[in-house]
Design a protein around this nucleic acid. Structure first.
Length: 858
DNA sequence: CTAGCCTTGAAG
DNA sequence: CTTCAAGGCTAG
């Protein structure tokens, strides 16, 4: 397995000139920032703390220190280096004292982090920091803008998830730190991000108690009222019971990002780098899967957010960055997981009610929404029409577009860059930011105006706007190859504003350029409508021809017996009868699913594990069996692994390895995979229409209480079309007889039973997603701060499901009730699964986050 | 760090 | 050969 030295070597090998080619997008980093520290109770539970936490306490889920450290060395690239504390401080002298002080403190910490190790940052996290320091972002005033701090390379990014896992697993640190971060952690790659060592910074770093203790698993965080370590942590951090995480007023708060996930947009970089990490790009695999963004090109040829042009040899991705040995691209970031939480939320609607629109001018939220629709529309256009834009809805010619102002800053458009027509400066800015994985944090925490004159003032908001306007992370080539045509999906995407049929191209562009657009709302509405229509069409397709991994036996179309009119009419009716809420939930469902590319990446690491970290193995599937070094212990290991592999929880998470691996690290790998699964869940949660409006504290609480149910339920749903078998990932299945050999028959049996019910009820995808939300929103836990609110949200979901079932399955009015009756079964099954998993892991196996979650179980 | 200009190189 | 989008270089 990869060890420190190997990591370092890789890092060193990485081309430094690029400084950062390896760096992850800011977003990713952000995620990490989410983690928080306990120290400053900020007003509102502000997140500022979060940032600290990450550095200080967050032990990586994996517990590996090494990866982190390694990252520092190289990952920091410039930042860390430049990070010399003193220098940076000097730069900020101009700020007001108070603010400056705060900022400087922040920087100091950052430097420390850099110096000691990269500190995982997330946009959100960063934003929060200032707040933490007491700086009132809002009051800060424009001056602060100048002082924006950029957190550059993140450690996380560079670290290899897998590596970390493998190397550090033994030293797992209990994540006990908080669940607060859970969100962040889950979503973000926290793992690497939390450099244990880095914490030394002046900033009082709080090391996780377990840092030094390799056996973190055993570590029991002091429990407060909550038994859950995560919860406990959270509480600790907030004196007063405030939520530590979210505190950010800004939508981008660390917490926000944490859960958010950058949603659809996983960090492109991430994905490329890290097998587990969600990609930053909007088009990331998730998005592509769902095809939410585009009509025409449902699946982008390039799932990888980051464009890997010339099929990078394994491990060549981001040269130097770290691909851990052979794992190739993803390895480096991975692990962590998930780290990268991309900030960017692709689709995501800003959850935060704060209005936090980040991008320009205050209309960000709207804009982002527009983007979505825009993307869809744009995708429809044909890519690269030589010279002429693919038919833009408005019939805008390429020339016209080029003559329009840059949608980001209003400058002159120089061409089509990274998915949109933009000026040279924004192109360069986007490239630098992504390639160097810079984490910019808006000191003001809000959307700053981005214009030609102000674009240099707030890189954070500028970058946010780049994303909002459609720049694609995947367009940044991970291998940095030059020339040639880009192959990422939707080569030509018109700026949102330009697509608006309500405005002429120029007007639209101008409007876009001007952050203050008054017309945005109208545009947005209009676009939203269009987008919605497309979604409906797409949904219809899904419903009628749904067959995904979880092929639905009973699609609404089938069930809609009452609708016997012409097919098209029927489709229309069905589509129109889908409650908005359900539709919204469905729209983020892609965040839940893994793409083939992701699965491939996730499994890649196994190769390394199987071969002792060697890069020789090319595919996870074939790996283990050929490992030459298998020794006598292998048998035992294999048995253990087999158990792990067949564990219902892991299986339900879609995690499974081929099982051939004898390497003990496989377990760690599986744990990481599980972490990733959870990470995706968090992303999904954060984007849910109802969930995102719940306080972070409660979000965490709900997630802790339902993660297992969610995983098992999805697994069962996925197995609907395979009676007698529970589908694991990648087509692998477990039958009851197989389960018996592992002592898992009880759990598998229940899962099969549940699956039978789902099959009998002909549960369709809409019902499935609605039920997941209902399960997630179980408010029967005493730990909720706003139980009533959660209850209300759940009721909405229930109403949506009920309305849906009645509309689509009028012949079976009891369906709604029957569906709900499955929930208790699901919960019991989960309890069993958890117990089994816990037992299975008592022998020391590390389960990282998963274990943390388990330990947090009450 | 920014941004303008240059170099690449796949696609047409 | 021409396009043109992506990366690289470098003065400011």
């Amino acid at each position: 397995m990869p060890n420190m030295s190997s990591i370092k070597a890789e890092q060193q090998s990485a081309p430094m000139g690029g400084t950062g080619s390896y760096q992850l997008p800011v977003n990713m980093c952000t995620s990490s920032s989410a983690t928080t520290t306990t120290t400053t109770p900020s007003r509102h539970n502000v997140s500022v703390t979060n940032i600290k936490c990450e550095l200080e306490e967050l032990p990586t889920p994996n517990g590996n220190l090494v990866p982190v450290i390694a990252n520092y060395n190289h990952g920091s690239l410039r930042i860390p280096l430049s990070g010399q504390p003193h220098n940076q401080q000097d730069q900020e002298e101009s700020d007001s004292e108070a603010e400056l002080t705060n900022i400087e403190n922040l920087k100091v910490r950052r430097r420390a982090a850099d110096k000691n190790g990269p500190r995982p940052m997330s946009w959100e996290g960063e934003l929060s920091e200032p707040e933490e320091n007491g700086v009132s972002a809002g009051s800060g005033g424009a001056e602060l803008m100048e002082t924006e701090t950029v957190i550059k390379s993140e450690v996380c990014a560079t670290s290899t998830p897998i590596q970390a896992a493998s190397t550090t697993c033994p030293t797992m640190q209990p994540i006990k730190t908080e669940l607060d971060n859970i969100a962040g952690e889950l979503q973000h790659p926290r793992s690497n991000a939390y450099p244990v060592s880095s914490c030394n910074g002046p900033a009082k770093l709080k090391l996780a108690p377990t840092q030094s203790d390799p056996i973190n698993l055993k570590y029991e965080p002091p429990l407060g009222d909550n038994n859950s370590p995560l919860l406990t942590t959270r509480n600790k951090s907030n004196s007063g019971g405030h939520l530590p995480l979210p505190a950010n007023p800004s939508p981008d708060s660390a917490i926000h990002s944490v859960y958010t996930h950058s949603s659809p947009s996983q960090s492109p970089l991430t994905s490329r780098h890290a097998p587990y990490t969600p990609s930053l790009s909007r088009n990331n695999s998730d998005a592509s899967h769902s095809s939410c963004y585009s009509y025409s090109s449902e699946f982008s040829p390039t799932h990888s957010p980051i464009q890997a042009r010339h099929a990078p040899p394994a491990g060549s991705m981001y040269p130097g960055s770290g691909s851990a040995g052979g794992n190739g691209a993803g390895s480096s970031y991975g692990n962590g997981v998930h780290h990268h939480g991309m900030l960017y939320r692709p689709l995501k609607v800003e959850a935060s009610s704060t209005g936090g629109s980040v991008g320009g001018g205050g209309s960000c939220s709207q804009e982002s929404a527009q983007n979505l629709s825009m993307d869809s529309a744009s995708s429809a256009m044909d890519p690269l029409g030589s010279g002429s834009l693919p038919a833009s809805p408005a019939g805008i010619s390429r020339q016209q577009l080029i003559n329009s102002p840059c949608p980001i800053c209003g400058d002159k458009i120089s061409g089509f860059h990274y998915g949109i027509f933009s000026c040279e400066s924004c192109k360069g800015f986007f490239k630098r930011t992504v390639q160097n994985r810079k984490n910019y944090v808006c000191v003001r925490g809000g959307p700053c105006q981005v214009s030609i004159s102000t674009r240099k003032k707030c890189p954070a908001c500028r970058f946010e706007k780049c994303l909002q306007k459609g720049m694609k992370l995947e367009a940044i080539r991970e291998d940095r190859t030059r020339g040639g045509r880009s192959t990422y999906q939707c080569s030509y995407t018109l700026p949102n504003s330009m697509l608006s049929p309500l405005l002429s191209p120029d007007q639209a562009a101008a409007a876009a350029a001007a952050a203050s657009s008054v017309n945005h709302q109208h545009q947005h509405q209009h676009q939203h409508q269009q987008h919605h229509q497309h979604q409906q069409q797409r949904l219809q397709q899904q419903m009628n021809g749904y067959s995904g991994s979880t092929s639905l036996p009973a699609s609404p179309s089938l069930g809609g017996a009452s609708i016997k009119t012409e097919e098209n009419d029927a489709k229309t009716l069905r589509a129109s009868s889908i409650p908005t809420l359900l539709q919204e939930i469905m729209d983020v469902e892609h965040l839940w699913q893994y793409t083939d590319a992701e699965l491939a990446r996730i499994n890649q690491p196994l190769s390394a594990f199987a071969t002792g970290g060697s890069s020789s193995s090319s595919s996870s599937s074939s790996v283990a069996s050929t490992a030459p070094h298998q020794n006598h212990q292998q048998q035992q290991q294999q048995q253990h692994q087999q158990q792990q592999l067949t564990n219902p929880l892991l299986a339900s998470a879609g995690l499974s390895s081929n099982g051939e691996n004898a390497n003990p690290d496989l377990i760690a790998h599986l744990c990481n995979v599980a972490d990733h699964r959870l990470y995706k869940i968090v992303k999904w949660c954060k984007s849910l229409p109802l969930f995102k409006n719940i306080s972070i504290d409660d979000q965490i609480c709900l997630l802790i209480n339902s993660w297992c149910e969610l995983l098992l339920f999805s697994c069962c749903f996925r197995s609907i079309d395979t009676p007698g078998e529970i589908k694991m990932s990648q087509g692998r299945k477990i039958t009851l007889s197989q389960a018996k050999t592992n002592g898992l028959q009880t759990c598998i049996e229940r899962m099969l039973n549940l699956t039978d019910h789902l099959r009998r009820l002909r549960v369709d995808r809409y019902e499935y997603v609605a039920m997941k939300v209902i399960v997630l929103l179980q408010s029967d836990t005493t730990e909720l701060h706003e139980a009533v609110k959660v209850r209300e949200c759940q009721e909405k979901a229930l109403q949506g499901l009920q309305a849906y079932t009645l509309a689509h399955y009028p012949d079976t009015p009891s369906k709604f009730g029957e569906l709900l009756l499955r929930i208790p079964d699901l919960q019991r099954t989960c309890q069993l699964g958890k117990e089994m998993l816990t037992i299975k892991t008592r022998d020391g196996a590390d389960f990282n986050l998963l274990m943390e979650l388990l330990r947090g179980e009450h």
